[in-house]
Amino acid sequence: MGTRLGKQTLRLDSHPVIQAWASIAGAKEGNGPMGRYFDEVVQDEYFGEKSFEKAESKFIRETFAKILMKGNVSAGDIQYIFSGDLLNQCIAASYGIRETEIPFFGLYGACSTMAESLILGSLMVEGGFAERTVCITSSHFCSAEKQFRFPLEFGSQRPPTAQWTVTGAGGVLVGNSGNGPKIVHVTTGKIVDMGITDANDMGSAMAPAACDTITMHFTEAGLAHNYYDMVVTGDLGTHGKNICKQLLEENGILIQDILDDCGTMIYDTTVQKTDCGGSGCACSAVILTGYLLEKLSKKDLNKVLLVCTGALHSPSAIQQGESIPAIAHAVGIEMIP
């Protein structure tokens, strides 16, 4: 059984194992600096479907199939699925896995969903309630633009703080045995709202939440600042990453050299014209399942803290003059022999 280390942080003593992982990304992501790490790159933004929403569901469905294949398990071996996405009522997730007949928890943590699902999935395993769980999430540039901003073909200008929603899906199989990377610490974030109202500036909205969760993680787990090889935030982008760095320094958390951000890793921001970088649930999901877990399993990295960040607003809330509440969840993943 796990140990509660503080208000937000738990240590998972049985070390749930990430047994398998899979990632599918879109064409733009495939052309980015991380392109070669993804299991599959889909060139067609419709993925052979009739709408972007259906395409996003297919990203989930295909990723799930890949996880089963790579983990060498069948759907019957999975006790729970934790999944979510950015669409209204989380339809990418529920339509994506509706044929699986596996008990399902639909989650909404905006772009923090990968860590949120990973925390819940690993706790289920830690508690002994499941042998295996699948945690999976997706986002799609076109369906996200439609839902949160303007129609795709509308000729609007992007402000320089804007970010580009990642098209893709990533998921993991968490189990109670095996040799893969292990989940050791989890820190559940709390909502932090510093009054940012600009929906085109997610970095500023989410950086304080990331800083808060990272600070709580190091403090409550009692870890040295050089404990991890890498601390990777979800989708702060270049602007949010700068803010987060500064906030952490002010808090006395000295991890500037090992801090990176999936949003800044996934695109070549100047060549691909993505302004501040990537965002969306799939941003941290494909970097985790494409790059980080691969590096961990090859022992290029030994300890990684994944901090997925989410902006919990909606277009209606913003139009009603509300500010953007943000959250960040952290998962400490380690290679333990």
């Binding site: 320089p160 510093m194 500036d201 500023s204 304080p208 270049t238 602007h239 700068n242 803010i243 501040c276």
Partner: peptide
């Protein structure tokens, strides 16, 4: 404070 934070982030944000 929230106001100070918003002002600060706008100041260091990439400019149009």
């Amino acid at each position: 404070t929230k106001n100070e934070y918003v002002e600060w982030t706008q100041k260091i944000a990439p400019k149009t």
